[in-house]
Design a protein around this nucleic acid. Structure first.
Lengths: 349, 349
DNA sequence: TGTATAAGCTAAATCGATTTAGTATGTTTG
DNA sequence: CAAACATACTAAATCGATTTAGCTTATACA
């Protein structure tokens, strides 16, 4: 039933020439290898006629290159990551690479499993949102000269290419913006993760709070209790216990979701009074009521920076001296009603 | 620099035995092939010691199996698809398969490119959201005995496994629900695609409208004009021109987004009067104001049904007679304020 | 004692490409 | 005219696994 695909061998046999010749022609080395124009054309025509496609598996085995990139994120169904995936997929495709996506759930064992797996699948390069404890695995990849770029978070004492948002600056600006709009007791709702992205977000918030001599109100939800239900009850207690709160800053998109649910369900009157800022924009925030101010991560810029680091590594075009680059991308604060602009907007109606 | 990975050959050399023996042992065929217990253990111990991992590329070349599945959707950054991707990734992983995701943009050329590409990469199976004109490509896959399952839409006259939502029933129920709640002029905003999923959604709407002898109000936005901006102006004109409209049904999640933007921007007073139903739920709909009634596609059920069809095909466990199955999954109507429940809910405050 | 059968192991072909190191001509050139 | 070089092409090794066919030696059975 399954008819065998055309191989270089069948072409050679049918044209009564050697596989070497066929290979040279199909790899564009005809000139260099002194294959006559006549024969070259004959091979090309025939290959076209039978719709020859090289078997990439065989190619990979021989060359050690697979043209596969791995894009490993925390959770591919998180829209921040799936939107990045889409852009990266397109860029990679144009450069002749295919992308395998996978989710590590920020779990070290799963990360290590996946990395080792794709290493043995000859993945040519990795874009990784690292889980907390895989520094040594990343170091191994680097030692083995396998191209890696870290995304979203990094290891401060590891020399590895990375593209991350300037989290510190982003939360500093956003918090300062709340302060300027008159909010005095700003809660910061985050996870207890000690990974860089969360630490930096906290630092930016704290810096702004200190500069204005305000009080710090921080809720750290244990990372393994960030399911919607558990987050909601934690946030609820936090709001209940901090009567003075007049604003909240959610440090991740999933915390925002839980937080908005809490406000909607338990304090619908507060939602228009509270200052609200969230990390990561969402298509619906600009039409929510109130519209929600968000720290927006520039998806296209992040993706292109990632590929700008990765592609030269893949092509071995990298000068040793500038091997490691850490790109810091600035986030954008999209100001909407929820951070104080609401009074203004309301009066427009 | 790049140290070579352990191969079966180095193991054989280091233990002074043949690669054949090593291969037999590592494939669990020691008994069957009469390899002594002593030697078997020696090989296993040594393989463990040097952390041997088979080169999957070589394995693929030899066996013709790659353990790769392709999950081709319209757009992986659409949350319906990325959420499915996440579940499928997990199921596949447990069965020893890796998944390559890709977006075809509902474009035939891109679909064909990608399919042909992964065919030559020896993908073991395909889950495909087909673009309109790739029936013959799918037929080819089937003819070549390559496992395929279609998702979300199908070709009525093609004998191919598929898992789709009962679109017709879903929109029928949802529309009937609006009618029961007293809405009399229900607009249906869809694309001009003639693919099954969109046709069936329209049919369900029309059936409900006819049963109640109401007037049909349909807006078909050309598929290539579904960018947010163009959709918005089309929807705006539609609402402006149909003064009698008291409800709208959005047939896809991206049309809902545009539609809600239009309502928010141009008719904020209408948003609480209008009946609104949308295809595909969104995490924020339950806390939107008003909360939005949605036709929710059961992601886990769809994913498991897909894999229930695909896995036996991959393992060649399929009896000829029951080769083709078309699974119809029922959607769930999640009733919220926007479809008329609002009066009730409002009175609770 | 002779022969079948089992036990224990291996050589070599194979998958489909790439690439090195040729061979056999033809053409220049000093 | 012989050495040097260019042209046109190919045999065979290689990547790392799997698998068929077979080769010894040991044991069983009649």
């Amino acid at each position: 039933m399954k008819k065998k695909a055309v191989s270089i061998k069948t072409i050679a046999a049918n044209l009564n020439i050697s596989v070497t010749t066929v290979s040279f022609v199909l790899n564009g080395k005809a000139k260099e290898k002194h294959i006559s124009k006549l024969l070259t054309q004959k091979v090309l025509d025939y290959a076209k006629e039978v719709n020859y496609r090289p078997n990439q598996i065989a190619q990979s085995l021989r060359t050690g290159k697979s043209n596969l990139l791995v894009f490993m994120v925390e959770d591919i169904s998180n829209s921040f990551f799936s939107k990045l995936a889409r852009i990266i997929e397109d860029i990679a495709y144009e450069e002749g690479y295919k992308v395998i996506f996978c989710s590590n759930e920020n779990d070290d064992e799963k990360s290590n499993d996946l990395i080792s797996l794709f290493k043995f699948r000859q993945a040519d390069g990795f874009i990784i949102v690292p889980s907390p404890g895989i520094k040594s695995t990343i170091q191994e990849l680097i030692d083995e000269n396998i191209p890696v770029v870290l995304l979203d978070r990094y290891f401060p004492d590891l020399d590895c290419n990375s593209v991350v948002i300037d989290n510190n600056e982003a939360t500093f600006k956003a918090t300062s913006h709340l302060i300027q709009n008159g909010f005095k007791n700003i809660g910061f709702i985050t996870t207890d993760s000690d990974q860089t992205q969360m630490q930096d977000r906290l630092l930016g918030y704290e810096k702004a709070i200190e500069e204005s001599s305000l009080n710090r109100h921080v809720l750290k939800i244990p990372y393994n209790e960030t399911s919607n239900g558990k987050s909601k009850s934690a946030i609820k207690s936090f709001i209940d216990e901090h009567k003075k709160l007049d604003a909240v800053f959610f440090a991740t998109n999933y915390l925002t979701r839980s937080g908005l649910e809490v406000l909607k369900e338990d304090a619908p009157h507060l939602i228009h009074e509270f200052g609200i800022i969230t990390f990561d924009d969402n298509e619906l925030f600009k039409i929510y009521n109130p519209t929600i101010t968000a720290v927006s991560q520039p998806l296209t810029e992040i993706s292109t920076e990632l590929m700008k680091l990765l592609l030269p590594l893949l092509k071995h075009e990298v000068v040793k001296e500038e091997r490691v680059k850490n790109v810091l991308v600035q986030a954008e604060l999209i100001i909407r009603e929820s951070s104080g602009a609401k009074k203004l907007v309301k009066s427009q109606f």
